[in-house]
Simulated assay, not measured.
Amino acid sequence: MQSLKYLSAYSDQTRAQVSLLIAQHKLADVLRKRYPAAHGIRTDRALYDYIQDLKSEFLRNAEPINKVAFDSKIHVIQHALGLHTAISRVQGSKLKAKHEIRVASMFKDVPLEFLRMIAVHELAHVKEKQHDKAFYKLCTYMEPNYHQYEFDLRLYLTELDLSGQRIW
């Protein structure tokens, strides 16, 4: 079985099924059939609006998100697809935090489900800092298919890694 670094946490049976799809050159076709088109969110402003809509629907009482942007410096190699940062500054006698969400530029050309999974993941970090049970519970509250989208994104990253070809 070939190295499936994005699927290392999955069962041997799952990795064997993926290896079979790869050997038959069908992984890209399976993903294209499941997700026929890429989304239309191309600008930082459109991404900001999209994430703000998600936040206002699911996290109304959370701290505001001050900046959202696609970032070409984020790479899968760094084990990051998106980043949530809180920058603290002293203003008078108060400590103010500004929240920023950055999404890897590669997500400009993927299905909306993948972008949503990344957005939900980064929004969940506003409330839950660690990747623990509460964090994933919040992710699945905001997107019930979160785990399926994450798995499919890992399949896409595997295909991209092996072929070097984008699907969408």
Rank of each mutant, 00 (worst) to 15 (best):
A62W: 05
E63A: 04
E63D: 13
P64R: 02
P64M: 04
I65R: 00
N66E: 05
N66Y: 04
K67R: 14
K67H: 10
K67N: 08
V68F: 01
A69V: 12
F70H: 07
F70W: 09
D71G: 06
S72F: 05
K73V: 09
K73H: 13
I74D: 03
H75P: 05
H75D: 08
I77D: 14
H79K: 15
L81I: 06
L81S: 02
L81N: 04
L83F: 05
L83Q: 10
H84N: 14
T85F: 15
A86Y: 05
A86Q: 14
A86H: 10
A86W: 03
I87M: 12
I87W: 14
I87P: 04
S88F: 14
S88V: 13
S88M: 15
R89D: 14
R89Y: 13
V90M: 14
V90K: 15
Q91H: 12
Q91N: 13
S93H: 08
S93R: 10
K94R: 13
L95F: 11
L95M: 08
K96S: 13
K96A: 13
A97Y: 11
A97M: 14
H99G: 06
V103G: 03
V103H: 02
V103Y: 02
A104R: 08
A104K: 09
S105W: 11
S105T: 06
S105M: 04
M106T: 10
M106N: 09
M106H: 07
F107E: 00
F107G: 02
K108C: 10
K108F: 11
K108Q: 12
D109L: 07
P111V: 01
L112H: 05
L115C: 06
L115N: 03
L115I: 08
R116L: 01
R116H: 03
M117K: 05
I118H: 00
H121K: 03
H121L: 03
E122L: 04
E122W: 00
L123C: 04
L123T: 01
A124R: 03
H125Y: 05
H125C: 06
H125S: 05
K127C: 15
E128T: 05
E128V: 07
E128N: 10
K129M: 09
Q130Y: 15
Q130D: 15
Q130A: 14
